[in-house]
Structures are given as structure tokens and as C-alpha cells.
Design a protein around this nucleic acid. Structure first.
Lengths: 81, 81
DNA sequence: ACAGTCTTTAAGTCAAGCTTAAAGAACGCA
DNA sequence: TGCGTTCTTTAAGCTTGACTTAAAGACTGT
């Protein structure tokens, strides 16, 4: 999954505590931790929006993408991931 | 929902046909249309990745965010959206 | 009238985002 | 050594909604 979550950089750079950010954003520490370490497979825009608002940033600061050949092949109805 | 999907600009600028892009990305025309017009509430990273790959772009070219005061208030367990 | 493109609705499937709770790892500090 | 703090991880469960196919509608141009 070449979508990279770059939220961690922001948190570190700003010296935020996960606990506080989670509270501010309105998500659980668990979910923030999972998201932060790239262990989620997607995100709801409501969550993304609240992250952007709390961090005063754009989605671009939270998500990046590294090109991958495999992303060009259409996923088959059978083999996946 | 102040997350703005800016995919449409890319499609127009490049003169792509929705049908072709859908096929290339591996999603239905329906879903592409809904996504394109901002009618979805989230996205899977696998889909986002394939969009980025097909369009040779970054998430930043597909998603934007306009600050909204309401995104700073923590959603209550009852009142929503 | 017909073909092409795109949108929209409807109905359904199912992955996974999200939650809470609890335990674990790693740190420092007295 | 224990306690506090922070963060991660697992597990179980709830609920949303991304996705699908199918079909119909709207619009354009020929």
C-alpha cells in the first residue's frame, strides 16, 4: 500500500502528544495510533477533515503517495492484495 | 464536508473520459462519478493509490481541504452531521 | 431517432473504520 | 522496584459506507 501517512512528522515537529491530539480530533488514541503508523486501509473524510482542522494543515501534509507499478494493474475479482 | 475532491479538474485538464479512467483505475463508472462529484464520505487507500498511479499524481492533486470551524468541535455520541 | 457520455438511484455485499477495554512495551523518576 | 506517563497492540463488536451491478435519466451531437 504505497499511500504513506505522513502525520507522524507533523506530530513530532510540533511536539504534540498523541493523547491530546486524539482528544482534539475526537478519535480514540487507538485509532490515532493505527492511523499514524499506517495500519489503516482508508479514512473517512469526516476524520480527515477534523485532522486537518486540528492541525491546521491540508490533506497533502497527512497523505503522500509513492508510485508503484502494481497500482496500474486492475485488481482481479479473485486475487487481491 | 469540507474535504474537496479536486479530481474533476485533473480529468478535464487532461481530456480524459470517465469511462476510460474508471476502467484504468479498476472501479465502476458509478463510483468514479460519485467520487468525482464529492458524494462519497471516505476512500480506501487502495483506490486512492490506483487513482494516483493512473493519473501520475499525488493525493494532494485529488483531495483538498477548506478550513471549517465545525471541524474543531468534537462530534458528540448523539448529534451527528 | 439514435449513439455516446455522464449521472443518479436502488439494492445489496462486505471490508474496515471506528469504538471500548485491557494488556504490554518503553521510558524516566524517586 | 515500583509508579506514572505515553504509546502501541490486540481483541471483540458495532456501524458506516465504499464498492458492486443494473437500469434509467439527462444531455449532447449527428
Amino acid at each position: 500500500m504505497p499511500i504513506r501517512i505522513t502525520l507522524d512528522e507533523l506530530i513530532t515537529r510540533r511536539g504534540l502528544k498523541a493523547k491530546d491530539l486524539a482528544a482534539e480530533v475526537g478519535i480514540s488514541e487507538t485509532q490515532l495510533s493505527l492511523f499514524r503508523s499506517g495500519k489503516v486501509r482508508g479514512i473517512r473524510f469526516s476524520t480527515l477533515a477534523r485532522l486537518c482542522a486540528a492541525l491546521k494543515c491540508k490533506p497533502a501534509q497527512l497523505l503522500d503517495y509513492d508510485f508503484d507499478e502494481n497500482d496500474l494493474i486492475v485488481p482481479d475479482r479473485d486475487e487481491d492484495d
